[in-house]
Nucleic acid binder design. Structure first.
Lengths: 238, 238
DNA sequence: CGCGAGTACGTACCACCAGTATGTCGCGGT
DNA sequence: ACCGCGACATACTGGTGGTACGTACTCGCG
């Protein structure tokens, strides 16, 4: 049975639609419109993903919010996941920049780590960062892709801090070991941030977290300043 | 336009189907069959969720694997999420029991924490635990529900360990503070476990992680044994 | 200035999938 | 013996991600 040639029936396009952003200056207004469409999509997607999560956000609602159609979305992104990835990268980049800014001034590694901690605790309370990066990032992107993206943004900052702290000691650690330390700290900070943002009084919780991590840093500092050996295994503990 | 009463057409049921588990002993074979069906569903769901993730697993594939139909699934569970939750709880419970077992023997808090660390690093390399609990748990269940379930299983063990370590010091901490420390450690261990299981040589990575955490524990220990003050804020660092 | 081509979308359609409504069978209590 | 209810099975629906294809507008080139 041949498909009845299903009458495609007069594809009447939408009303031409007013261009979506001004400044039609030379150098391709076409391209400018396109970029603005893409940005709008990411904007709306970020909002909706943050509010309702990945699975709870339909592409229809996104394109409706951006006042375009799925055709536009699939022209700019290969699919829902790719759109999420774009949102993820932007949220990440913003966070990394904020942390970077907070770091810049300090030379002393301990003060630097303290400033970094505070900046991170701030960032991690942003709903967008919490939802998109911490909560859904690993599940949606898969762990490998997640780490790949994280590698060169926020995690890079944590690694930087950890390195400067570790290098304050007399011994030197190989790259692998620094990575491990940074990973551990990153995980600790992420859940600490979650704890803070979940808490009924975030202010007090943030104080406690700072105290706890500060305490751990103190332990670190004591060992570093005393030039303690880094054990190869827990077995060397007296 | 009245719906044409769409001929429901002879609901012919499946072949009676041989009962799914033996031991028809007294006390309700009916209930036994039912329980075994439920268990089969959770078994298959655990396998598929672990392999393909939550979104990548269709209910059809689950019921097909369990050799039942969606009717059975929706009779036992209120939906896909509830089924995932059942899987989650089982994976969690198994993990908690394993850790519990590893803990039991030791009295010294430092040895206890060491044993707990090793057990946790073992558990966290299980694909099921990684995928269901660590990776997808927070995203699928939502963070509050996730913590609610976690509260009384694996996390309870971590809390127990942390408490015994912290109580070894001269000072006492309030519950809140212990919770914070436990959270931080839990997060650190989780990402450490991820690092290990992602690594190309998990053995070596596990060694490094043990060394790193052992080092941090040493710092803790030094502070505890010297009766260091727990700062109320990082500001009191000299 | 005309025009061909390609970009930037819009429209219609499909496959799939979670969830629902409704049916039936047989165990188990009476 | 019987019948109520638990334990499923079946058919169907709405919604959703993805695709195939069509069109208008712009930009560069002759």
């Amino acid at each position: 049975m041949p498909k009845p040639a299903k009458s495609v029936g007069k594809l009447v396009p939408k009303v031409p639609k007013v261009p979506r952003v001004g400044v039609p200056g030379v150098g391709g207004r076409r391209a400018a419109f396109s970029a603005s469409t893409k940005r709008d999509l990411v904007d709306v997607a970020e909002r909706l993903f943050t509010e309702n999560g990945y699975a709870g956000t339909s592409l229809d609602s996104i394109v409706a919010g951006a006042e375009v159609t799925k055709g536009a979305l699939y022209h700019h992104f290969s699919g829902k996941q790719a759109l999420f990835e774009a949102v993820f990268e932007r949220v990440e980049r913003d966070a990394a920049e904020r942390i970077q800014a907070a770091l810049g001034a300090h030379a002393d590694p301990w003060e630097k780590s303290l400033a970094g901690l505070r900046a991170f605790l701030d960032v991690v309370q942003e709903p967008g960062y919490r939802r998109v990066v911490i909560q859904e990032g690993p599940a949606v992107l898969g762990y490998e892709r997640y780490r790949e993206l994280e590698e060169r943004s926020t995690f890079a900052n944590v690694l930087d801090i950890v390195q400067s702290v570790l290098d304050a000691g007399t011994w030197r650690l190989d790259e692998e070991m620094k990575q491990i330390f940074a990973r551990i700290f990153f995980g600790a900070l992420a859940t600490a941030g979650e704890t803070v943002s979940i808490s009924s009084e975030p202010e007090a919780a943030a104080q406690r977290v700072e105290a706890a991590i500060g305490f751990m840093l103190s332990g670190f500092q004591v060992l570093v300043e005393n030039g303690a050996d880094l054990p190869n295994s827990l077995a060397d503990r007296p």
